[in-house]
Write a protein that binds this DNA or RNA. Structure first.
Length: 902
RNA sequence: GGGCGCGUAGCUCAGCGGUAGAGCACUGCCUUGACAUGGCAGGGGUCACAGGUUCAAUCCCUGUCGCGCCCA
């Protein structure tokens, strides 16, 4: 017997273990089934499950469970990524709390500590994914720092280097002074900051009393200025181009150059150029061959190495002692000191309030400092070409399609990808340097050594050249980019690789189209010669109930685990599906999840009702040979639902899938079928009882299977509880294939008629305020023989569900004080003398009459339009004629009913 | 500045050439033996605005206004 209430917490964990231990999640490359692979977007190993994961993972799980039931050999690849910066920070924090630090313990010990941390507390998210019900193939779990995946990383690095697609370059990079590392331009976000515009007077060299005023948002960088730029067509400064200014404080002479970059409209039209600390200035510097002195160190403190030798005392303009005093100061403090000194010297023209965009590190939030450094770069432009072509040719498809524009736009304008990071945790760059700085890129130290010996012409017996490995590691996304094939064993030509690559689908959020999707496309096409996935489904962001982004600072985040504890995983999963339409963000709130729980409860209670009424799965039941109209009807309705739900999933319309399941279960199966069937199901000797019970069981079984991908726990529990199959076996059951031939117009028409009959009578009674306890007869007037026959066939249901004492045919005179309603050709008369107010009834019928008159008018006007009749599709014209006729006859009956009122 | 998306019932959203829908909320009635986490019924919409195309526009096109996101 099923419990009175479904308690998710009691079944979820045991069921999950059962599935897992039975191998239900395991891919089976040996099976003859068609493969269907989905790669998890690997969560950070430091991460914990948030609402975004809940959405993303649920959508994947629904997809793979559905495909699995359809008979595919599903591989849903689990794993985590090593999250370089995030993980390093976690461990560094621990070290700090121990009064230690990474520099104290050294690199090797530090890495060991990270692995220890990973062993103990890393990857807790994988356990949280289990709580959600995610049917990942855990035996194949991978980590981006695994030996196999690391080998893939080295292989890719070495190969791309050999092909000239990975190289070292000295250029400006986004530098995070807090982490002391380069970061990707994708990891930088502009934030609007209310700052100032400082107007600095630079004295023109050899022209006492003459100045050029430059406006800057960053006065402290002036120590590194190597020019002043003005627009070539700016008449104000034409005479100054080619001359020099004496850079205040340093006394250095720098040129005034003409460059389009300078905007005559902005500030004074003259800008200072600091090539080593600004991306635009860097380009100006390159164009004019300017020196690029660096004046900020890795922690954004003033450093004088590049300018110390050029410091020149100039009376009233430059004092080297002052500049030397700045060494080691943080950029903020240096700014204050420099501005004060310039003011003292009378070189500060004015200060204006100014709002501008300042680059910040997405992670950590530090103000990003552009720095001139040597880093490793990947030639993304070269790799982007095939990726763009693949999407253009439809070999990979975005759903919704419009995301391909985002993809193309970024790919068209792609910049060299800085792949080195000044961290310890990550894939160490497989490059070694000889004593003279010569670079040897190889799979390992030995191979590098061999290269070095060949290069230096070392003969056997001679001492080997001392090599030092590059201290840097690779961007975490570098290894993530290989995920679709590195997890399958590449560079080994494993059977898995052959079978599951390219994968079927990738499900992810738009925020990582650049970070991840694009890079997987590039690497996949380059190394596998084929796209990594056929379809990329892009879902929206999870927002709170008010549509705000969920954030820690707002504290408006929904904790999925809390939702699961409170309402069950099925309720959360149903909610996620219901709110996932195409191309829209999803609003998630506890209220929504609570509502979904009602649906779980409804299903549970319906199943329990079935069980109590002897509904048992009957393998002998053949829906084709069902005879009773109720059986035939619900079986056919179930086929429509199955078709709709399947089509919705094919189109990634999770919302439609959820809605169709909800509608069929609640508004068809429960509200009508079970209600109609109650007396039959409750009876031991009813002649159709066996068949209707079997039909009920058949349809309930379909419901369980159709809902299983979305609500696996409750459906599995019912599946076993009601005897459909063994515990935990629903996950392997066959997905229902809709059989539209089971539809029967006659049966559908008849049940539809009964539903309308009952609904109409209910509505009139409610409107007339007839107490439910008061039963009343219904008399048919002008009814055709088939209607009379139907009324008799359905009299029991009509009586019970519409509070009708008896259904008869009106003979003789019209009863006084009766309510009337029109249903097809018949008029239903409800003699409720004394219970209804004739005037209320008159007004009710009058309103109906007016409504019909309105509809008739509209239809007549359309049909009177010769253009409509001539140009509209014939079936539309026919339909309009039929509607008009229907309205007219309904109205005639309503008017007749009005005439009978007194 | 460029691109994408969105303005439909009080709220959240579906629909997208021919009858405007759902869930929730709201109102009234109902403790009927599956379910009050329930049942029955009801009210509520110039489909942002203005033009255009069409026999016909919430739907297609153009523009305007408002909102959001991405890129610069």
């Amino acid at each position: 017997m099923l419990e009175k209430t479904f308690i998710p917490a009691d079944v979820e964990a045991p069921l999950y273990s059962l599935w897992e231990s039975a191998g239900a999640f395991a891919a089976d490359p040996e099976s003859g089934k068609p493969p269907f692979a989905v790669m998890i977007p690997p969560p950070n190993v430091t991460g914990t499950l948030h609402a975004g994961h809940a959405l993303n993972m649920t959508l994947q799980d629904v997809l793979v469970r559905w495909r699995r039931m359809q008979g595919h050999d599903v591989l849903w690849q689990p794993g985590t990524d090593h999250a370089g910066i995030a993980t390093q920070l976690v461990v560094e924090r621990t070290l700090r709390s121990e009064g230690s630090g990474r520099d104290q313990i050294g690199r090797d010990a530090f890495i060991e500590r990270v692995w220890e941390w990973k062993q103990q507390s890393g990857g807790s998210i994988t356990h949280q994914l289990r709580r959600l019900g995610s049917s990942l193939d855990w035996a194949r779990e991978r980590f981006t720092m695994d030996e196999g995946l690391s080998q893939a990383v080295r292989e890719v690095f070495v190969t791309l280097h050999r092909q000239g697609l990975i190289y070292r370059d000295r250029r400006l990079v986004n530098w995070d002074p807090e982490f002391g590392s380069a970061i990707s331009d994708l990891e930088v976000e502009s934030r609007e900051v209310r700052g100032h515009l400082w107007y600095l007077r630079y004295p023109v060299a050899d022209a006492p009393g003459e100045f050029i005023t430059v406006a800057t948002t960053r006065p402290e960088t002036m120590l590194g200025d190597s020019a002043v730029a003005v627009h070539p067509e700016d008449a104000r400064y034409a005479a100054l181009v080619g001359r020099q200014v004496v850079l205040p404080l340093t006394g250095r002479r720098i040129p005034i150059v003409a460059d389009d970059y300078s905007d005559p409209e902005k500030g004074t039209g003259a800008v200072k150029i600091t090539p080593a600390h600004d991306f635009n200035d860097f380009e100006v510097g390159q164009r004019h061959g300017l020196p690029m002195p660096q004046i900020l160190d890795t922690q954004a403190r003033i450093v004088l190495d590049d300018i110390r030798d050029e410091l020149q005392p100039v009376e009233g303009i430059a004092d080297p002692a002052f500049v030397r005093s700045l060494a080691g100061q943080a950029r903020g403090a240096a700014r204050g000191a420099i501005v004060a000194e310039l003011e003292r010297l009378g070189l500060l023209d004015r200060i204006e309030a100014h709002t501008h965009q300042v680059p910040h590190a997405e992670r950590g939030g530090a103000v990003v400092e552009p720095r001139l450094t040597t880093q490793w770069y990947c030639d993304a432009r070269h790799l982007a070409g095939p990726a763009v072509a693949a999407v253009q040719q439809g070999r990979m498809q975005f759903v919704p399609r419009q995301w391909e524009n985002t993809f193309f736009a970024w790919m068209r304008d792609i910049q060299p990808w800085c792949i080195s990071r000044q961290l310890w945790w990550g894939h160490r760059i497989p490059a070694w340097y000889g004593p003279d700085g010569e670079v040897f890129v190889a799979h390992d130290a030995q191979a590098a050594q061999a290269q070095a010996q060949a290069h230096y012409g070392v003969r056997p017996g001679e001492p080997a050249p001392a090599l030092t490995q590059d201290p840097d590691v690779l961007d975490t996304w570098f290894s993530s980019a290989l995920w679709p094939f590195s997890t399958l064993g590449w560079p080994e030509r494993s059977p898995e690789l052959a079978r599951y690559y390219p994968t079927a689908a990738l499900i992810t959020g738009f925020d990582i189209i650049f970070f991840w999707v694009a890079r997987m496309m590039m690497m996949g096409l380059h190394f596998m010669d084929e796209v990594p996935f056929r379809t990329v489904f892009i879902h929206g962001l999870v927002r709170d109930e008010q549509g705000r982004k969920m954030s820690k600072s707002l504290g408006n985040g929904i904790d999925p685990l809390e939702m699961i504890d409170q309402y069950g995983a099925d309720a959360l999963r149903f909610t996620v599906c219901a709110i996932t339409g195409l191309g829209r963000d999803a609003r998630l709130g506890a209220r929504r999840v609570e509502e979904s729980r009602s649906f779980v409860t409804k299903l549970w209670n319906a199943a329990r009702f079935c069980e109590m009424n002897g509904v048992r799965p009957d393998p002998a039941f053949d829906p084709r040979s069902a005879r009773h109209p109720l059986s035939r009807w619900i079986v056919a309705e179930a086929q429509h639902a199955a078709a709709d739900m399947n089509a919705a999933l094919e189109a990634f319309r999770y919302d439609e899938y959820a809605q169709a399941g909800y509608r069929f279960t609640w508004n068809r199966f429960c509200d009508w079928f079970l209600e109609f069937a109650k007396p039959i199901l409750g009876s031991a000797e009813h002649p159709d009882a066996a068949e209707v019970r079997a039909a009920a069981a058949h349809v309930l079984g379909l419901i369980l299977r159709l809902l299983n991908p979305m609500m696996p726990f409750v459906t599995e529990t019912l599946w076993a509880g009601l005897g459909y199959g063994e515990r935990g076996g629903l996950i392997r059951a066959a997905w229902p294939v809709a059989d539209q031939t089971l539809h029967d117009d006659t049966v559908a028409g008849e049940v539809d008629w009964a539903i309308r009959f009952i609904t109409e009578i209910r509505a009139v009674r409610a409107e007339m305020n007839v107490p439910p306890a008061r039963m009343a007869p219904v008399l048919l007037r002008d009814a055709g023989p088939e209607t009379v026959a139907r009324a008799h066939r359905w009299s029991e249901a009509i009586g019970r569900m519409a509070r009708v004492s008896e259904v008869g045919v009106l003979e003789g005179v019209m009863p006084k004080g009766a309510a009337q309603l029109v249903l097809d050709e018949a008029t239903l008369v409800l003699p409720l003398h004394g219970l209804i107010d004739v005037e209320v009834e008159r007004s009710r019928l009058g309103k109906e009459d007016a409504r019909l008159a309105d509809e008739i008018g509209k239809a007549e006007r359309k049909l009177a339009n010769p253009d409509f009749v001539a140009r509209a599709k014939p079936e539309v014209v026919d339909e309009m004629r039929a509607r008009l006729q229907g309205f007219r006859s309904d109205r005639a009956r309503i008017q007749a009913a009005l005439g009978r009122l007194d």
